[in-house]
């Protein structure tokens, strides 16, 4: 009997057995799991998807717990496991499944989805970490596209206030990438040899930004 003719429940049993072997680092046959994933992702079979979740959720959870930044999130591991599985489904379903020929390749991609779920979560939290509650609510209300447009307009406005390329670079490192002076020196020592040089340049930039009426109003709105 070929993999494709097996009933989904039988296929899932065989896949679960092989996954147990895989997790014990024992020799295992990847064909059953690959076929189960194909049915879940290409055929959109609810039964196959349910089995995929049941079989792989424990593995995904273990990956979440091993991620070096998971502890920084303050979230429970199951949240990221669900998120990673959903992102994986939407990224690999349909014709995109043909990008993968082997089970280890597709599982490695699932592991990548764990990484992106945690990193994106932390990225989204970062700017609000030490901010006022009303700012958090304002950002939460904006759609990603609205936030992006607002950000792009604001950045273009800032660039008009600080036309010098070095100032623009420093503003980017400070306000967009949230880098501290020591970090900036490490990455750009040819421009700023020491932290004091960064501080002096930053002070000049800040004075120009604070002198701008539009930016002052924007800051006042956050009060």
């Amino acid at each position: 009997m070929t993999d494709s003719s097996l009933h989904t429940d039988k296929l899932a049993d065989l896949c679960a057995d092989e996954t147990t072997r895989f997790m014990r680092h024992e020799a295992n046959d990847p064909h059953y799991c690959f076929e189960l994933l194909r049915r879940a992702l290409v055929d959109s079979s609810g039964d196959a998807l349910t089995h995929v979740y049941r079989i792989y959720e424990p593995l995904v959870l273990s990956w979440v717990r091993r991620h070096e930044r998971f502890q920084h999130t303050g979230e429970d591991a199951s949240y990221f496991a669900s998120l990673a599985l959903r992102n994986f489904y939407f990224a690999v379903r349909g014709a995109k499944f043909s990008n993968f020929q082997f089970l280890p390749q597709i599982l490695r991609y699932l592991k990548r989805c764990v990484h992106s779920a945690i990193e994106q979560y932390l990225r989204d939290q970062q700017p609000t970490a030490d901010s006022f509650i009303e700012n958090i609510e304002q950002i939460g209300d904006a759609t990603p596209l609205e936030s992006e447009l607002e950000a792009e307009d604001l950045w273009m406005h800032i660039l008009t206030l600080i036309p010098e390329p070095e100032d623009q670079l420093l503003a980017r490192l400070t306000f967009i990438l949230d880098m501290k002076p020591a970090e900036i020196v490490r990455g750009h020592s040819s421009i700023w040899a020491h932290e004091r040089a960064v501080s002096v340049a930053l002070q000049r930039i800040r004075r120009r930004l604070r002198g701008d009426e539009f930016l002052r109003q924007a800051a006042d709105e956050s009060r």
């Binding site: 950000a151 792009e152 604001l154 800051a219 956050s222």
Partner: peptide
């Protein structure tokens, strides 16, 4: 306040 506002809006917006 200005600094925080700028970072909230701009943080990695083009990443």
């Amino acid at each position: 306040r200005l600094e925080q506002r700028l970072k909230i809006i701009l943080y990695r917006f083009d990443c």
